[in-house]
């Protein structure tokens, strides 16, 4: 056994922190895109567009049924061999794409369930004033479904942040890749990865606090 090299760890913190923006960029971009895609798929699953429904079901089934790492490799290393226009794709883009598709499949299911949880009378009131389907979804149903789905969606965002570490396997130097490079020089693997773990941990805890605030905000309309 040897003592932890604390000085090394403290020196490493700013280096790893320098990669936090990239991690957050991948997670936020992935989350925004996944939310849009998931909402579209969830609405489709509810109103069942003929000819599209089976495709959405297939998509959801595939991306929930296979590991994220396998999906990332499939996109980054596999697809460019089949689709030549993808050869330019860089690791960050591929990671965002993979995270988006993977998490949108999960999020579509929780948004669909949340939509089903919005009281029937809300739909009928929206229809009675002459709203189109799109207006009803955007202005009445989805905002209420968001409140129902919010805790689950924040959990997926947390999973997404942690999932960005897999970008390392696509050659992206993010927090994990930076730690790996540092440790390769110092051989202090435990210290390097411990710093990474603690930084992830703090980010996720900060988000958990944010989630509580978000829930209070969303519940504002429903408080007596």
């Amino acid at each position: 056994m040897r003592a932890l090299d604390l000085d090394y760890m403290i020196g490493l913190v700013p280096v790893i922190l320098g990669y936090v923006p990239l991690t957050l960029f991948m997670a936020v971009a992935g989350m925004v895109l996944a939310l849009i895609l998931a909402s579209l798929m969830a609405v489709e699953r509810v109103i069942k567009v003929p000819g599209l429904d089976w495709l959405v079901m297939l998509f959801i089934s595939f991306f929930r049924g296979t590991p994220l790492l396998v999906q990332l490799f499939l996109f980054y290393y596999g697809l460019p061999q089949v689709l030549s226009f993808l050869t330019q794709i860089n690791g960050v883009t591929a990671a965002i794409m993979g995270l988006t598709l993977h998490f949108s499949a999960y999020m579509a299911e929780s948004i669909r369930a949340a939509i089903a949880g919005v009281d029937r009378s809300q739909w009928e009131a929206a229809q009675s004033i002459g709203m189109t389907q799109g207006q009803m979804m955007r202005r009445i149903v989805l905002p209420q479904a968001t409140r129902i789905a919010a805790p689950t969606l924040v959990n997926y965002f947390i999973d997404m942040i942690k999932g960005t570490s897999l970008a390392f396997t696509l050659g992206v130097t993010e927090m994990m890749g930076a730690a790996q490079k540092e440790a390769a020089g110092s051989f202090l693997y435990f210290e390097a990865f411990l710093v990474v773990a603690v930084i992830y941990w703090i980010m996720v805890e900060a988000l958990n606090q944010g989630q509580k605030r978000l829930e209070n905000h969303l519940n504002k309309a429903f408080a007596r």
Partner: peptide, 22 residues
């Protein structure tokens, strides 16, 4: 159907106010 709905107004037994709106 939309045109018909825009010429009628409906008051529901259970009010059915939009819960996310003031």
């Amino acid at each position: 159907i939309l045109a018909l709905r825009r010429r009628t107004a409906f008051v529901f037994q259970n009010y059915a106010l939009f819960a996310n709106k003031t």
